[in-house]
Amino acid sequence: MNKLVRAAQTSQSLSLAAMEEASRVGLREAGIGHLFLALVINDQSAGRALRSMGIDLDAARRAVEEQHEAQLASLGIEASFPEAGRIVFHETDGYAWSPRALDLITKSSGKNKTGDAAAVLRELVAEPSGLIAEILDRLGTTPEALLNQLDQIDSPAENTKPVAAKVKGRASGSMETFVPAPMEEVWEFLADPILVPEWEPSIGSIEHTGQEATLGGVWQGLAPASHPDGKPVNIKPQYRRRSIELVSAHRPERIAWNFAHPDVSRSSSVLMEFTLVNTTGGTQVQITKSWSRRNGWRSLVALPLRPIQKFLAWITLFQTGSAISRAFR
């Protein structure tokens, strides 16, 4: 993967996670504290380094809040921040990075820097205000110790990524995400047909049949009728209905769902496969989405569009991945 793509994907996933963290405490601007929290739940080496030092999301959230309250106390102001609620990022608008945080992210993809989450973390621990160093101190560590740990984890040998097996005639996309919850719980979440709308953005509701989640079971889903902000969704009637089949279930490490449009002739179905791996502080989930390519002249027309297709696949995978992680935060 080239640096540009890596940097873009890193900043996309860090932005989403940081702004989600900002949204739950009633803020619309994500600062360096939120960037730190986003790194704690990051799927790359930066997140692994933080979590391997015993820093999980709950501890990190607490440390950030306590640090701000301590700073207020130093001004002689005894105040506590309003209690954090749920993540409302998707229902609200007007989000932005604080200039300081944006500056750090921009620098991390500069000359001679890798542009991945580890590069962002390196910039963050060196930020000049000292806020992050103080937060790390509350978490029982120091910037130096963290950088040492990052150097160990970030060695090239650790970075061999599993690549989805290529199948002839099928296109696929794959991504990894970190979920701050035990593997068994994540599996249960992904195996529940009622919860499919939580992680698959193209499904708004599932017909509740009360049927057990068994292999080969088929459920009917409907496309969402409205956006999170209440505006109606325009969708062709034949694309409203979707059938969802549980095609593979190996508790607790693998599960796969097949999505099809029953009202569209010649519709191609999409296979979503999840592979779960236990990791420090949670579960690493690999999501692979695959579908069959069109045959005949259409495949030639589609050929030049493949980079765009790949990008769109990445977007939907990214939405699914972040939705799974969000469900456990």
Partner: peptide, 16 residues
């Protein structure tokens, strides 16, 4: 640094 925490608190309270 404490003043920046105060701004954060002010922003949170303003939206609330």
């Amino acid at each position: 640094r404490a003043v920046s925490s105060l701004r954060l608190l002010a922003d949170t309270l303003e939206l609330l």
